[in-house]
């Protein structure tokens, strides 16, 4: 039963991601991406990661895409009018590399069947792990990374502030 839900959610995520890329109007593509993120959150729950699913919805779909929407509104970016300048070389190169890449990737995933060397064959997916274990691990083995990410957020804060501040009359 879960397999069905998982496949459905994955399919939804992929379809809306395609919509996002193909969409002309940035607002439509942001919304399509939001739906795709929600579908991903569903898959995370099925993959025994409830905490991450909640995080995905709150941070990704909630904060980042809202920031995008805010920016699109602020700068009133209109739908992208094809400006008629077809650059044959670049689009050809781009699409060629993408097709090759996609084929390679999917071929490999299909072929390898993703056997893991010497790992447990089937993991019993009975109890959803509680986030407490995650927290304990976070503050023991990965404390330094936690601090590094906090410095990173501070750097991003300073950077964003510097770039986006309105010119104060100096």
């Amino acid at each position: 039963m879960e397999r069905l839900i998982f496949d459905a959610a994955a399919l939804v995520a992929i379809v809306f991601a395609g919509l996002m890329v193909a969409g002309r109007d940035p607002i439509k593509s942001v919304l399509a991406l939001a739906v795709s993120f929600f579908a991903l959150a569903v898959t995370y729950v099925l993959l025994l990661a409830p905490f991450i699913a909640a995080l995905q919805i709150i941070v990704y779909a909630g904060a980042i895409l809202v920031l995008f929407l805010f920016l699109i509104m602020l700068l009133n970016v209109g739908p992208e009018r094809p400006d008629g300048v077809r650059r044959p070389v670049q689009t050809f190169l781009g699409s060629l590399s993408v097709v090759v890449f996609a084929g390679l990737l999917l071929g490999m995933l299909r072929a390898s069947g993703a056997r893991l060397p010497g790992q447990p064959e089937a993991v019993a997916a009975d109890a959803l792990p509680d986030p407490k274990a995650l927290g304990r691990l976070l503050f023991s083995d990965y404390l330094l990374h936690f601090e590094a990410v906090s410095v990173l957020l501070l750097a991003a804060l300073v950077g964003a502030f510097v770039l986006a501040r309105r010119e104060n009359a100096q």
Binding site: M1, E2, R3, F6, D7, A10, A13, I14, A17, G18, V21, T43, L46, L47, L48, V98, F101, A102, L105, L106, M108, L109, R110, G113, A114, L116, E121, A122, V123, A124, A125, D126
Partner: peptide, 20 residues
Amino acid sequence: MIGPIPLSHVLLASGALFAI
């Protein structure tokens, strides 16, 4: 296999998303 979901499904989905 994670419960009923085979790992290759997960990887296929993530590979497709990555390609897109």
